[in-house]
């Protein structure tokens, strides 16, 4: 049971990596990865939001929407949950932890339109996972996002300093780097039989 949980986390984190395989969270991946500490803050905020949002959305789907036969309202419900969660977290940080707000607070509104949060919540219920597997998916996805965005930011810092041709500067070379990273991650495919 625990083994299945851990394997599911590894699957979501490495084999079907959220950014390089499933293509969630590309906008912050390209936008907030110029400096390493920014990337770290973004990744931590994303972990927080995805885990809590998935934990709230799964019970709502299975205990409120499905018994009432209105399962098609899941998209609207999830986006409401995610948006309210982000607003509440931001308010909470502003009032009780100004230091945490100074580092994470800027990125919280950006997480509302992050494909990863809605993608994970929607994917959990579209593929009919149990609550344990949904949480494994959420934890693996968000930690995978942190790993990827941090690694990418370290690479980009080096890229800024190197001699890139003018037409490739900025986003194009970043995308080509992401392509190489994606190829490298294909190497994880055989990790879990």
């Amino acid at each position: 049971m625990v083994v299945a949980f851990i394997l599911a986390i590894i699957n979501a984190m490495l084999i079907q990596n959220v950014v390089l395989y499933r293509f969630y969270g590309i906008c912050p991946f390209l936008g907030v990865s110029k400096k390493s500490n920014e990337a770290l803050s973004m990744g931590l905020a994303v972990i927080f939001v995805i885990v809590i949002a998935s934990a709230i959305c799964w019970p709502i789907y299975h205990y409120i929407l499905v018994p009432a036969n209105i399962a098609f309202m899941d998209t609207i419900t999830y986006i409401l949950v995610i948006a309210s969660l982000v607003q509440l977290i931001e308010m909470f940080l502003k009032k009780y932890s100004p230091s945490l707000y100074a580092s994470l607070g800027v990125y919280l509104p950006l997480i509302t339109t992050n494909c990863a949060v809605l993608g994970v919540a929607q994917g959990n219920t579209d593929t009919n996972l149990t609550f344990g597997m949904s949480m494994a998916n959420a934890i693996g996805t968000s930690v995978g996002f942190l790993i990827i965005i941090f690694a990418f930011s370290c690479i980009r810092v080096r890229l800024e300093a190197s001699n890139v041709p003018k037409c490739l500067k900025g986003i194009p070379i970043a995308l080509i780097t992401a392509a190489l990273m994606s190829l490298a991650f294909v190497g994880f495919t055989g990790l879990i039989k």
């Binding site: 409120i64 009432a68 036969n69 209105i70 309202m73 609207i76 419900t77 409401l80 309210s84 607003q87």
Partner: peptide, 20 residues
């Protein structure tokens, strides 16, 4: 169940607007 669900969604919308 349908009534509970409609109330729950209405509650969510209210929570969203109020928190915003």
């Amino acid at each position: 169940e349908l009534i509970i669900a409609i109330v729950a969604i209405g509650l969510l919308i209210a929570v969203f607007f109020v928190s915003y």
